[in-house]
Design a protein around this nucleic acid. Structure first.
Lengths: 214, 214
DNA sequence: CAAGACCTGTGGTAGATTTCACGAAGCGGC
DNA sequence: GCCGCTTCGTGAAATCTACCACAGGTCTTG
C-alpha cells in the first residue's frame, strides 16, 4: 500500500469488500495457493473482476500484469489498507449470549484484534470466565479502558443500557464502537460508531420473499 | 401500501432503512406519540428527511401534507411493505452461542417471525432446551422443514458446515436464508440468500480508525 | 524474438442513490 | 375565506458506485 493514500477518498462501499477479499485470500493461503487473478477471486466471491481491481487501485498497485496477485503479498497489503497491521485492543461490553459468541470468535486474534476485557452489569455473571477471560463489572469499565488503552468497544447489552455503556466507553477513551444494540448511539466527535442490526437483516429477507406468494 | 407496487423497483438500499424506520416508530408508539414528521424521524435516525419521504414514496403516500404521519398507521403500512403481515416460520440451524442469542431475541415474534425450531449436530446439545424450545438433531432438519413449512433458515453453524446445512434447508423447501457463517452459500434459483458478516464489521471499524494515528 | 494468450490498472460512462428545492395541500387564526 | 405556517410528495440535479473496454505489461511456445 502506498503511504500517501487518502483514506477519505476510498468509497465507503469498498471497505467491507476489502475485508471479504481478505477472508477468501486467507483461505487460499491456507490451501497453499501461491497466486490468484482478479477473475478467480471474482468467481469465488460472486463479484466482478473489474470491481476488485478498482478497489485495490485506491490503495496502490498490488499485482503484476499478465500474471495476477501473489496471495501472501496481497494479504499483507490489504491488511495494511484495513489498518490491521499493529494491534487493536478490543473490549466486549455485555456478556450475554451474543457477547460470549463474539468473545469465542477465533478470527479475532488472527487479524490483530486483542480481546482485552469483557464486561457485564450482572453480579451473577461478573467473576465467571468466558474463554479464559474473567468477566469484569461494568463499574470498572471506564478506568479499565483508560488503563488498558482499549481502542474499540463492542456493545452487546440490551437496548436500554447501550447509550450509558457507550458514554462510559467514550469517557474511557475509546475511539471506535461496534454497536449490536438496536438503538442509535449519539455520535461524538472523534469516535467512529458502527451500527450492526441483526433483526433488520431478517426483515430484509422477509421483504425479498414477500415479492412472491409464500 | 398500494397493491401494485413492483418491489423490484425499490432500491436495495431502501429496504434495510425501512426496517430501521419501523423500529423507531415502534418506540414512538410505545411512548404514546400519535404522529411524527419526516424531519423528526430523520433527527432520531441521523438521516435525511427527504430520503425518508422518498423511501416511503416507492410504496405509496402514507402522510398528510402539513401534518406528518400517523404513527400507528405508518407502522402498519411499513410492516406490509416489508412483508411482515402474516407469519414467517423461521428455524435456527446451529445452537451455539450465536444461535442461542438469536433464539432469545424477543423482537422475533413481535414482527411476525415464528421460531419453529432450532437444530444442532452435537448429540450433547440435542434434546436440551433453549428458551423453551427443544434443540433437534440436524438429521431431522430436512423433514422437519418440509413438514412444518419453514420459510426462513438462520444459519449459525461453523463455516465448514454452512454449505451442507444450507443444502438440507433448501431440500426442505426453505425460501430464504440468513447466513452468519463466514462463507458464501452457493446461490440457488428461487432461494434468497443474505450474508451477514460480523468479523467484517470489526475490520471496517479498524479501517476508519486507522485514518488517524492510534 | 514474434505471436498469441493472459492479466492488471484505469479513464470513461452508465446506472443507482441521495439530496435539493419547490409545488401541492392541510391547519389555525382572524 | 384568506394568509401564513407547516409538511408531504417528487421531478431534477448532484453525487456515488459499478462496470466496460482497452492500453500496457508478462509469460509461453516454437
Amino acid at each position: 500500500m502506498v503511504d500517501y493514500v487518502d483514506k477519505s477518498k476510498v468509497p465507503q462501499a469498498t471497505v467491507p469488500r476489502l475485508a471479504r477479499y481478505l477472508r477468501v485470500l486467507h483461505r487460499l493461503e491456507r490451501d497453499g495457493v501461491p497466486k490468484v487473478s482478479s477473475k478467480e477471486l471474482a468467481e469465488r466471491l460472486n463479484a466482478n473482476a473489474a470491481q476488485i481491481r478498482k478497489d485495490f487501485s485506491y490503495f496502490g498497485e498490488f499485482g503484476v500484469r499478465g500474471v495476477g496477485y501473489e496471495v501472501k503479498y496481497l494479504i499483507g497489503e490489504l491488511s495494511k489498507c484495513l489498518g490491521l497491521d499493529g494491534d487493536w485492543n478490543v473490549a466486549i461490553c455485555g456478556a450475554g449470549k451474543l457477547g460470549q459468541a463474539l468473545a469465542r470468535y477465533r478470527a479475532f486474534g488472527e487479524e490483530g484484534f486483542r480481546l482485552a476485557g469483557i464486561f457485564d452489569s450482572s453480579r451473577y455473571v461478573v467473576g465467571t470466565a468466558v474463554d479464559g477471560l474473567v468477566i469484569r463489572s461494568e463499574r470498572e469499565l471506564t478506568s479499565f479502558f483508560r488503563e488498558n488503552n482499549v481502542h474499540i468497544a463492542i456493545i452487546t447489552v440490551p437496548a436500554e443500557a447501550a447509550q450509558s455503556v457507550a458514554d462510559k466507553a467514550i469517557e474511557g477513551g475509546v475511539k471506535g464502537i461496534l454497536n449490536f444494540a438496536p438503538v442509535r448511539i449519539t455520535p461524538v466527535e472523534g469516535v467512529y460508531i458502527r451500527q450492526v442490526d441483526l433483526s433488520t437483516e431478517l426483515m430484509v429477507v422477509s421483504f425479498y420473499l414477500s415479492q412472491r406468494p409464500r
